[in-house]
Design a protein around this nucleic acid. Structure first.
Lengths: 190, 190, 190, 190
DNA sequence: ACCTCCGGGACCTCCCGTTGGT
DNA sequence: ACCAACGGGAGGTCCCGGAGGT
């Protein structure tokens, strides 16, 4: 008797809408209408819009191709390159319309919702340590020679990626993404 | 007789509110109330909320201590360090509550308002070339030895700063800002 | 430029609706529609529904013919009789549909809104002391011989009136009001 | 297999919620949640919220210690005193938060639900005649000398009690209940 | 009999932009 | 230019009752 699509549809629709329009930029009505679900059903599944945002953040982790970062058959540095290459593709395929949900929520809700801020922070942290692991591997393998600590480099790299998305979105220009790759792998991770 | 403070008060109040709450996170009412101005007066000075946003973006340029970047009595690299040090102070003094208005607007409005997106893009570009100039100077002066093009480095640096603000805001932790300095000047601009 | 009727119409309409349907029994929409005012205008005049309730309570004082109680040309006891006679008429003219707003609000909102409760309490107190004054006069004039303190008698009288309205409303029967008079002036105030 | 506690739990929970928050002040959801019963089960036991209200009114009779009024081993007047003393205790123990359910429903629903109004009226009537019987006994026994008809006195007494509860609730002050006793037994029932 | 899920509709609140008298 | 008042139209939330599988 669970019609599993209702909740699922809402989350997916919200992921899209939040991503593109921001939390305050779309209404529960927008989301449910896009999901093909009556608005009245919304509150059977979520305590409120903020609750939905939390669920969407959790779900968002899956869109990134994390498995690319842990494949042992590829050298660490190559994994990083492939990973950001894949992210770049995701962004361009979406028509530069969304950026990164975590960054967007941080900018929009950090001062508005503590639970959202904390969850975003947690996801960003875990993302950063994932990157840090690969960078550490690359350092051990001698692919990266800088002796800066992996977590510093990973944090900076993640920041740069976030900012790059912001700038690329403002410019509607994917060239900025290429520049990211040039500098990230041409200077930062040497 | 135009009371000159009315418009001015609105812009200043809006700068603060937009910065902290986002464009959709505060109402015209909030802004005019914070400015101590009757809401009805608002539309004598601005065509609408979006129009105000444009003015606020223009005004926002002034908060950054750009003059630090062009002082010829300091070496280029030192200027960059001082500049980002000053930005860091601004951010921490504000209690990590705001981030960068340009980045925030890019994340929130890129898909919602083309004029805002374009103005944000223009400001980011001019900001990036300002940084590129100083980096070029530093390269000529031999303070920076990497042979990557200045505008690539400047863009990456700017991105990293934007992303760093996002992350610091999510984490409510200024330590992330210090990490930015370590990596920016310990690896990126070598 | 103040269209004075808007606010006024809302208050009058609300007085009627709250009185008959209770605070939770009617909606802001009901009230504004009955007032012939667009709902959107409501919040230009009141902070919210509760705020309106406070205003209505203040206004409600005027419906009671208080001046009857202070007319010096009539003996105190006769004033009391006339007064409750007038109240009885008001109630029957309204078709037993409302009771006393103060009593109704006390029953419905005492546990829900402290500000309403306090204002109701204040009005009931001042009402009671008004009655106490007249009773004291009547005692001095020898029209009432019981030596019970006037404020005790007044409080009891007021309570009895409130309860009588409740019972008459439940019964849809004005006979209960007549019984009130018989006992109030045939036994209580002897 | 009907789980007998389900219906029972709902009624008890509703008695509490209706008493404190009013009929319109709490939702079916509130009631079932407080009862620890799934909301969906509610409509297996009651046609609707109004139907539940009727059941609650019927149940409410039991909270009053009616048996005190018929104990033949105590003099009629003493029985009345004990009875209202017991009611006073019930009210103060509940923290002045509820008043009398019958009075509250009369005030809130008289104009909204005829069936509720009629049931309330019936209960109030039967309550009044119970009191009238005791008063008649007291008159026969010479404990009360006034020659006013017992049902008049009983109605007035009941009204006064209802009104006293309203006023005590508005004032959050049990002193008003003591005043009731002083006047009821110091003047009304002499 | 049970109960998860559903859903149309309404609730209070507030928003943005305008109107019209000063 | 000013600004109090306006108002159509959402905004998020919640409510009551029912549907439908177990």
């Amino acid at each position: 008797m669970p019609r599993p699509n209702v909740r699922e549809n809402i989350v997916e629709s919200a992921l899209d809408q939040f991503h593109r329009m921001g939390f305050n930029g779309c209404s529960v009505d927008d989301i449910t209408r896009a999901a093909g679900v009556p608005k009245g059903s919304f509150y059977n599944h979520f305590k409120g819009k903020e609750d939905l945002a939390l669920e969407v953040i959790r779900r968002y982790a899956n869109v990134a191709p994390r498995e690319l970062l842990t494949r042992k058959d590829i050298s660490p540095l190559k994994r990083l390159k492939k990973y950001f290459g894949a992210l770049t593709e995701l962004f361009t395929d979406a028509g530069y319309r969304s950026g990164c949900l975590l960054g967007n929520f941080s900018g929009e809700l950090a001062d508005h919702s503590d639970v959202v801020r904390e969850l975003v922070q947690e996801r960003l942290s875990s993302w950063a340590s994932l990157l840090a692991n690969v960078i550490a591997e690359a350092q051990e393998a001698g692919e990266i020679t800088t002796r800066l600590k992996p977590d510093l480099l990973a944090g900076f790299l993640l920041s740069a990626w976030q900012g790059t998305l912001l700038r690329a979105r403002a410019a509607k220009d994917p060239a900025i993404l290429k520049e990211f790759h040039s500098v990230a792998f041409g200077q930062l991770l040497l």
